[in-house]
Nucleic acid binder design. Sequence first.
RNA 1: GGCGCCGUACCCAAGUGGCUAAGGGAGAGGUCUGCAAAACCUCGAUUCGGCGGUUCGAAUCCGCCCGGCGCCUCCA
Length: 487
Amino acid sequence: MALVIYNTLTRKKEEFVPLHPGRVHMYVCGPTVYGDPHIGHAKSYISFDAVVRWFRYLGYRVKYVQNITDVGHLTDDADQGEDKIEKKAREEKVDPWEIAQHYTWSYFDDMDALGVLRPNISPHATGHIIEQIELVKKLLEKGFAYEVNGSVYYDVRKFPEYGKLSGRKLEELEAGARVEVNPEKRFPLDFALWKKAEPGHIMKWPSPWGEGYPGWHIECSAMSMKYLGETFDIHGGGIENAFPHHECEIAQSEAATGKPFVRYWMHNNMVTVNGTKMGKSLGNFVTIKDALQKHSPLTIRFFILSSHYRSPVDYSDQALDAAEKGLERLHNSVRQLYRAMGHATEVANFTPPFSIDAFKQRFEAEMNDDFNTPKAIAVLFDLSRELNKYINAPGPHHLPFLKEVEGFYQTFANEVLGLLPKDISREPTAETQELVEKLVQLTVEVRGELRKQKLWNLSDKIRDELAQLGIIIKDRPDGSSEWEIKG
RNA sequence: GGCGCCGUACCCAAGUGGCUAAGGGAGAGGUCUGCAAAACCUCGAUUCGGCGGUUCGAAUCCGCCCGGCGCCUCCA
């Protein structure tokens, strides 16, 4: 079954055909590192993480590039105002390079915690000044840009296709323009490729036009084409960046190379709070670090993947609590599977109680339909229901079959969606863990004796105290007990 | 004002022309249990914001209306 992707450029789902067979070249706009990442970032990068993981499952060799914007992103309207990183640096009374470094690490810390695989290349804008200058020079040579007083602007009227991604026309944009026009611009919608550094500006570089710094949009064109080629497969990012950021990237890149820039544009929708967009400038954001105080990383990941990447999702603690319970249900099922594998055998004349292959096909079909993670998750729940029924039925259970089911969970729940805890199989990782298990086992056995003697007060006390330590005891009908450590 | 999206059970959330409208949470009843937890079984939208229209057939297409949101200025 073919993979189809919703392409913002055509507003249709299209079959994915890679430019180079067997390979996917993909670029996703990374963060501007002037603050701790929030749940909105989590949605974007978890969504594209699932996309990358799915391509890898399908056998593609993925080259995933995600930039770090550490210069050039201005605070206000188009090409006015202050550099966001310099502003933050002034507020915190440190230099801008420290700000960029600090929040870059903060970003990766949070992504690591959420199980987001690192990109293959994480280029920094400040590390690619030369490439950006070269691109600006090329645009000047080709007549798509003009220099005014040490700054260089892109002449959007020279690029007739400007607006093709976001479905806008220049006249409409001009009419709706709400910001004061920079007098250096020939046309209100022209945008900065290079900005002259005003006195006191710290992050600046020499250029053919004097000391200055690159505009925001140019970095993505320069870096994506450097690492992925002048035409590449997929460019992703938040929907709010479709215009103007991605529109400008297209204009710059296609004007410079004369070739199509990107084949498939993918945009994730946003996270809302009480129905309103979560955004840095709105101040209604919840940082990932804050969220992790209340919810586990897997819960956040599960919550994000439970809605489609192109749909908005409303963040609330209640919603996260519900997600946590749902995810726990899934985990219980997998834990039960590992427990059952411990005493399963070969069953003669075994008839499978359900078809694993059918589940696999369903899962693949859902993911191939524009990465429909909510439906893929529903498939996991359906499998868990079937598996629970089988395991709860009188044994013995067929080990090869259970192993196949395990393979399913490992492949799809773990490798593709990243939703299983590392220790889900409860394999002891160290002697100490073994010792803990033996001690708990001993305690549980003693409690079993107490229960036989109907010393309920004492046995309940042991159960409650162990629960306080995170060890949950579950008594079975036949008088034996199971236990597990809750993370 | 321009462009675009959404409105599905108590909550979250799939489904975009045709089998019984996924899945999760919460809830109710049941099995099991000394109790509890977990697990399992059963129940829950004759209906998809409203009103019209197209069609043999629509939650799905078209029109209007109501409500919410996004982009058009920085934001994943």
